[in-house]
Design a binder for these strands. Structure first.
Lengths: 144, 144
DNA sequence: CTACGTGCAAAGGTTTTGCTAGTGT
DNA sequence: ACACTAGCAAAACCTTTGCACGTAG
């Protein structure tokens, strides 16, 4: 989904619930789409390149709104602020706890685990909301 | 490992690095062992039952120290403060993002995934540092 | 007119930092 | 004496809240 169709979908979703399409909401959604894995702070800076007066409060409120509407989603990468992405780009996140590098792998990689948890614990896994932590390829080389 | 042997191991580890065993460090380690999955705030309250003057700053510094020494470990459960446990009690954490319930499952459940990530991405998974998110059995019943 | 959305300022919770004073070796 | 610790206060960081103004329907 590109920027234009994303805006259209947003407008419709908002309208269906008696909410309004505003420049701020368009810009926040655009920023999340363009940046991928952006913190609220980063989204705010991006939005402010176009509309310098937009307040970080509005960014927080809008990200929360878009999240509840299902148009974006946030991932907790461990320390610090959560990271926002558009729904269409869902991955499993691998965070290296040594260098901080973020990798993305397809959600399907977790299908076997997902099945095991569903069968064994009645737990329906949401692969993209939390990251997996470990040590990345490059850091492994440097550890004897 | 019980409290007494935990303290002994701590004393040795600290001594080997020219650091000192202090009442605060003993108490923080004991609290983490007793509480399991405790936030720094909870650890602090527990420690203060015995030693009311211990400052939260000391708790943060001590938890960080014990973490670097490999005696405790913290898990990010998503929102909010991290959760500390002693190393011996390692699990995979499942957090329900609907009701907040925390379940623990054996780390071995992630062995297949761990192998896949190692082979396919050179990524060495650390199963217990981040939680897995999803919907728990009870909440699934309530969603049509 | 009314409900909604925004910006601003302030507060809230959590974690870190700078500094001083105390203590064990 | 010296290095290591602890406590305190303040800062930093991230996020939420209260309120008043503006605007679309």
């Amino acid at each position: 989904m590109d920027t234009a169709s994303g805006r259209k979908a947003l407008r419709k979703t908002l309208h269906d619930r008696g909410m309004r399409m505003t420049p701020q909401r368009q810009l926040v959604l655009d920023a999340v789409r363009e940046l991928e894995h952006a913190t609220p702070e980063q989204v705010c800076r991006r939005v402010q390149r176009t509309a310098p007066t937009v307040n970080i409060t509005t960014v927080y409120r809008t990200l929360d709104l878009l999240d509840r509407l299902g148009m974006v989603r946030h991932t907790h990468l461990g320390h610090g602020a959560p990271s926002y992405s558009v729904r269409a780009h869902e991955h499993v996140h691998l965070v290296c706890h040594r260098c901080g590098r973020l990798e993305q792998v397809p959600c399907e990689l977790l299908d076997p685990l997902s099945g095991t948890l569903r069968a064994g614990h009645g737990f329906e896994l949401d692969a993209s909301h939390l990251a997996l932590s470990g040590t990345c390829r490059d850091c492994l080389k440097e550890i004897p």
